[in-house]
Write a protein that binds this DNA or RNA. Structure first.
Lengths: 343, 343
DNA sequence: CATGCTTTCTGAAACGGTTCAGAAGCGCGT
DNA sequence: ACGCGCTTCTGAACCGTTTCAGAAAGCATG
């Protein structure tokens, strides 16, 4: 069932048949009608996308290297919002969204990247050593990097994680907190961690800066995966220390939820006896009890911007890589009811 | 930068060059090395996916028609889990996941469907009148339908929404509740609603059956979009009635969260004075206060199964449509702390 | 009626690979 | 020296479109 068959049946050349589908204004109404009718009769499902692609050179889709940050079991609530933003950014063009998820088999995933029929990639919060990233770069297609990994010469979209974290820490200091626990994904600022998630390091550094004198390494706890339970345990541990913290900075809302659970379990009142600050302002933050003070960042906007930047690059052809710009989006500390001056 | 150039540079035929990439076992080690070296020198990014596709006839990707059910602003927490399941199901093959989101411009979205380079589609919880579904069916590719819309002859994966809802309602009856409010997406079981989301109708019917004698149409409230706020208001409304309900059945966890908020606002204790049951067992359910009793369904498993069924169809060629099977997955009522006998 | 301008249609050349039938080269038994 | 079977390589056909130069037809103009 090829275009050729349709053309034959309609009694026109393949050229005309092609136009009838793709550039209706170039053929007479009569020919178009005949072609469409013939297609209908033959059950022709429309021009083969692969062939069209080969000929036109446009894939009509963009790839999104997608990581569920830390931990598979709890969905990062930021991801769907980001994806929605990307979809919005693409809404005007008939462009597909090829998701390339992280997988246990990273080698296979890299192969998917190599073979993906796309016009460009968005790299979303990928670990620095992810072979998919390398594969994407090797394709020599336009690329936009979101959140991670910083530093390539591709356009970048993200937030100032360090400043945002610093603001959160600073707020606690202003409230008067002197002993502040930190729930993080990575322990130290060492080289091994650098391979993984820069974001964590940035946030951690921000906390340290914002806490200034109140920064105490022994109050830092690593929670993996990004789920409430590790955070709950870490919080209990902190609260049972001889000199427990009066506030907790959590690197994600999910961890903050765990902190709330831990506090409840230890009969420590939030915010009267313990303040808690999350990160992301996801759905769970506003619906926690008490509602979480947290750092809001524009996930959806990130997605839309990334799509837009990528589309621009694709339009302009490879030359545009040079004129690539980066966007650092603003964050905001949303103060709710999980923070108060130390009791 | 074509394969031809690489072959030339390596001093072999294009045929051999192709084999060097795609079927290494068919060429001598020496030729392969030469080809790879030439590719490296020339910066050849690997065989063009579009061309490979055209020749082999396999797109190497599947399309997922994706709807964010009701309401754009609050992400359906089920969707990411489902997607993760699909990704898992595809993990073994280097297969991409082409997301085709719902959009305001449904016509454009349908065009994306028509032009998508995929080997098959998963239709996930789409409204029955969604033009994307029609477009997907017209492609004559393998299709698996998940949750919605039931009734085509394509393989189907889903749960028995009606039975699940009935079980939830039945549980309330067993606890002794006589007046039960219902928070739903659709008002009545009329024809207009049939066009949209069958799932809502099924659940509603299940509630009605499970409530049996206790079913009271005037206690049913429609909440749109699927967000806490409408549910909060509806709950307040219900609670301020002369004879308020002692329990509430919410069609989603999100609505149940809203119900909890409404109850708190009205100073009605949950579960002592009001029981609340959600639907989905999403992350928010277990972390609500009090933790929600809710209907759990295997979102991720649905995704994996759908991917598997689709892959099977693709493997076996078009003949397999006949042998298509459907899968109804089990649900479970997860009892937590938001339900109790009426006070 | 020759001329030039539109509008519409045709046919063939790409697009960049994969695959397959057959050629070439080689080792070996007789 | 010859035939045979293997492995390896080549060259051309083909996948299903789009596009583009040019042919044909229709029409007004001088």
């Amino acid at each position: 069932m090829r275009l050729r068959d349709v053309a034959e049946r309609a009694g026109v050349s393949v050229g005309s048949a092609s136009q009838a589908f793709g550039r209706p204004e170039l053929v007479s109404a009569e020919v178009r009608a005949r072609v469409l009718a013939a297609a209908e009769e033959l059950g022709y499902p429309g021009p083969d996308p692969a062939a069209r692609r080969l000929r036109t050179g446009r894939a009509g889709a963009i790839g999104v290297l997608f990581s569920e940050r830390l931990g598979y079991q709890f969905t990062d609530p930021a991801a769907p919002a980001f994806l929605r933003g990307v979809a919005r950014g693409l809404e005007d063009e008939p462009t597909g969204l090829l998701l390339i998820p992280d997988s246990r088999r990273r080698a296979e995933a890299a192969r998917t990247v190599r073979e993906a029929a796309v016009d460009g990639f968005i790299v979303y919060s990928a670990a620095r050593n992810d072979p998919r990233v390398e594969a994407a770069l090797a394709r020599r297609l336009p690329v936009v990097v979101v959140d991670q990994p910083r530093g390539s010469e591709a356009p970048f979209v993200g937030i100032d994680d360090r400043a945002a974290a610093r603001a959160a820490a600073h707020y606690l200091r202003e409230l008067g907190h002197e002993r502040v626990g930190v729930l993080t994904f990575v322990t130290t600022l060492d080289a091994a961690a650098a391979l993984e998630l820069d974001i964590s390091r940035e946030r951690l550094a921000g906390y340290e800066e914002g806490l200034a004198g109140a920064w105490e390494p022994e109050l830092v706890r690593t929670c993996r995966p990004n789920a409430p339970d590790p955070a709950r345990e870490a919080t209990l541990d902190l609260l049972h220390a001889p000199e427990p913290p009066t506030a907790i900075l959590a690197m994600s809302d999910i961890l903050a939820i765990g902190a709330l659970q831990g506090a409840a379990e230890a009969d420590v009142a939030v915010p009267d006896e313990l303040s808690v600050i999350g990160f992301d302002d996801s759905f769970v933050a506003s619906n926690a009890s008490p509602p979480l003070t947290t750092v809001a960042q524009p996930h959806e906007e990130k997605g839309r911007l990334a799509a837009q930047l990528l589309l621009e690059q694709i339009e302009r052809g490879p030359s545009a890589a040079a004129r690539s710009r980066s966007e650092i989006l603003p964050t905001e500390l949303v103060v709710r009811s999980s923070t108060a001056p130390p009791g």
